[in-house]
């Protein structure tokens, strides 16, 4: 309930703050017109509410912002150097990063942030499995990809620590990904739903039991999080 009220209130207050920023003055007139306009905007341009987690850690938020600034400077200088250096040999990569968050907001902010940090642009997002597909510049060999993937996951980690839900934090702790959980769930459902049918053959059932063991705790916390 608290999260629901917060989810409606935060965008509203954000709009009011934006209005006052645009006028560059913090006066009663700006506040009142801002509240009126924010109400008008949120009624006429109705958007489905973003589910906020209801928690915000200011310290990790600050860490995220400072690190983002450092990364922007580094990325800009790096791209500038790649563009200007004498012998440029093009070599890029497109790779997938399975994320650990289910929140749309954290996913979007991760995507925005990593478009600004060294060498990556989001090409596609698979929202169901929370997987980002990134394009990276100047990747000389396939061995460089794990390092890039680790950098992206570190960005997501900072965001989850700053504003992720308890569910996401749990997944962060155990190191499970949403895509892995979904696959395990699907395999388990297939194995449990139709045990004798021809489709659930031996390798499918075997992998379901194997992956069900190591991610059993994760899916337990996940269904708990969905209920609350």
């Amino acid at each position: 309930m608290r999260a629901r009220i917060l989810s409606g209130l935060v965008p509203f207050l954000g709009l009011v703050l934006l209005w006052m920023l645009l006028w560059g003055q913090f006066t009663w007139l700006a506040l009142i017109t801002g509240v009126l306009l924010a109400g008008l905007v949120s009624i006429t341009f109705y958007l489905p509410a973003v589910r906020l987690s209801g928690r915000l850690n200011p310290w990790y938020g600050l860490v995220f912002l400072v690190r983002l600034l450092v990364d922007i400077v580094r990325a800009s200088l790096q791209i500038a150097w790649i563009a200007l250096k004498p012998h440029y040999r093009p070599s890029n990569a497109i790779f997938a990063v399975p994320l650990r968050t289910r929140s749309d907001l954290v996913m979007v902010f991760t995507a925005e942030a990593i478009a600004l940090v060294p060498g990556s642009i989001v090409l596609d997002i698979d929202r169901d499995t929370a997987t980002l597909y990134l394009h990276a510049l100047n990747v000389q060999s396939a061995e460089d990809v794990p390092a890039l993937r680790k950098a992206v996951l570190a960005t997501e980690r900072r965001l989850i620590l700053a504003a992720g839900s308890a569910d996401d934090l749990e997944r962060l702790r155990t190191g499970a990904t949403v895509a892995g959980e979904l696959a395990a769930e699907a395999a388990r459902a297939a194995a449990a739903g139709e045990p004798g049918s021809g489709r659930a053959s031996e390798p499918g059932g075997g992998s379901a039991s194997a992956s069900g063991e190591d991610s059993g705790t994760d899916s337990g916390t996940d269904s708990e999080g969905a209920r609350t």
Binding site: S76, I79, A83, N92
Partner: peptide, 25 residues
């Protein structure tokens, strides 16, 4: 650097990098 990157980079996706990042800084 952004202008040079636009001219030198070989495909659309590479040019996107040149177009997005240096300007922010």
């Amino acid at each position: 650097a952004a202008g040079v990157g636009l001219v030198r980079f070989p495909d659309v996706l590479s040019r996107l990098h040149a177009a997005t990042k240096p300007q922010i800084l």
